[in-house]
Design a protein around this nucleic acid. Structure first.
Lengths: 244, 244
DNA sequence: GGTAAAGCTTGATCTAAATCAAGCATTCCT
DNA sequence: AGGAATGCTTGATTTAGATCAAGCTTTACC
């Protein structure tokens, strides 16, 4: 394994039914017994320090991870030293589905800030999927959402101009925060401009210009990574390529 | 449902263990009994006429499909009438994983030519996944491969110049054909230029110019959709952004 | 606490690829 | 078989965004 992973004292582990994320990341409708089995399967909580890797390409598939706090980026690295960022994972998101093809991770997962994750190890995962139908269905739903996010990103990279890419990204983050009970109007972006530009398929300078443009137009207010959405409807309106 | 789907006489259905695709699309190591259950679950084979839809966005998730012959493209359509092609599916490929998020398809699937598919309906799918571990694992492997393909496409759209995009696409198709027992040197592309350009995120004219360039350089020979790879190593060498 | 290193923004210039335009080939349809 | 529509290629022109360059701010590190 690749990084300094500090397992937190087990006593400090939050039980699933007390975890504020349980309704986000876990299937509903488990019996008391099933929930207990799930809880005991989540065998540890880890801290990943900023810039450390949760896993790297070719690492064996040891677990599915739920982000409890902090944030993770996944990316592909090429031989010539470039990278393509594939996704950003915020609290409540599940990471690790990239290893289903051959039980090895197919991309890197790196912490953008100090991050805490729950781990559901793959042995337990398989056992639970085998014996609890709702667990299996919940996981499939999660995998489906992952595929859906990637489709959306393909649409973004393939069809949109740079301003529209940023606009749809920001409305996405905003709605996501809102649905998680945070503010959709004002939030911090966890990633540096460099990473966001890469994710959105443009140069850092272009991204910076687009931030400035949206600010000049009075649509958002930008203060480094703190973003305030001043005109959500206008921002959303910039996303012309919405799915039918 | 959206299209004219002609179910083929059941007697003409090829049994799974005689199907030349079984080793491609089905998990290995089933017992005789399990194989029989799988075979009986694959309840029909359909023909989808060229340009008809196998399914459309928001259609209920009725089945997972295996392409037996022909080819399918999946795509997202936007309100302003644009589309982004997400994938091309050739014989031996499985289609339909886009509906896991909420049991509705999240993209369109259209036949590029007259196409035959096997259908594994979702009731059987769930039952088999619940009771046969190797079936479940095989499906997860397939889903993982799907995610891997999408990651590769994100890298292509996000990092590569147009010539490199085409070069990696062609080497990919070539290797894929080879591994399926077909010629990796000479093959027909099933999709029109328009679709390939969209998939690769460039204008048709640009795609056409890149085909011409590769031909002028003596790397490939192009005759409409018939492609001959003259210098596979040079073609592969154009793909600078290979994964570490 | 001071210096170095990232991180971010803005401006000037350049270029890869889009768009516009036209013509030829192929397929589709009656 | 004939005509229309679709598909493909090549050339000329334009442009969105990359690259190059510089300065300024914040964070990281002895």
């Amino acid at each position: 394994m690749s990084a300094s992973r500090v397992p937190i004292n087990k006593k400090a582990t939050v039980a699933c039914n007390n975890c504020s994320l349980s309704d986000l990341c876990l299937p509903r409708g488990l019996t008391k017994d099933e929930l207990a089995r799930l809880e005991s399967a989540i065998d540890k909580t880890s801290k990943i320090n900023k810039k450390d890797y949760l896993y790297r390409r070719d690492d064996p598939h040891q677990a599915i991870y739920a982000v409890k706090s902090g944030s993770i980026k996944t990316s592909l690295s090429t031989l010539d030293g470039e990278e393509q960022i594939l996704g950003f994972y915020l609290p409540g998101d599940l990471v690790g589905f990239d290893a289903f093809a051959n039980s090895k991770h197919s991309c890197d997962a790196q912490a953008l800030e100090d991050t805490f994750v729950c781990e559901l190890n793959m042995d337990s995962f398989h056992e639970l999927c085998g014996s609890i139908a709702s667990m299996r269905n919940g996981m499939m739903r999660q995998v489906g959402m992952e595929i859906g996010r990637e489709h959306q990103l393909l649409l973004t990279l393939g069809q949109m101009r740079t301003e529209e890419r940023l606009a749809t990204f920001l409305t996405g983050i905003s709605e996501r925060n809102q649905s998680r009970g945070f503010s959709g109007r004002e939030f911090y972006l966890p990633m540096p401009r460099h990473d966001l530009a890469n994710y959105l398929g443009m140069a850092v300078e272009t991204l910076s210009r687009m931030f400035s443009r949206l600010q000049e137009d009075g649509i958002i207010s930008v203060n480094h990574r703190l973003i305030e959405i001043l005109a959500p409807e206008r921002l959303k309106g910039l996303g012309h390529h919405q799915c039918r």
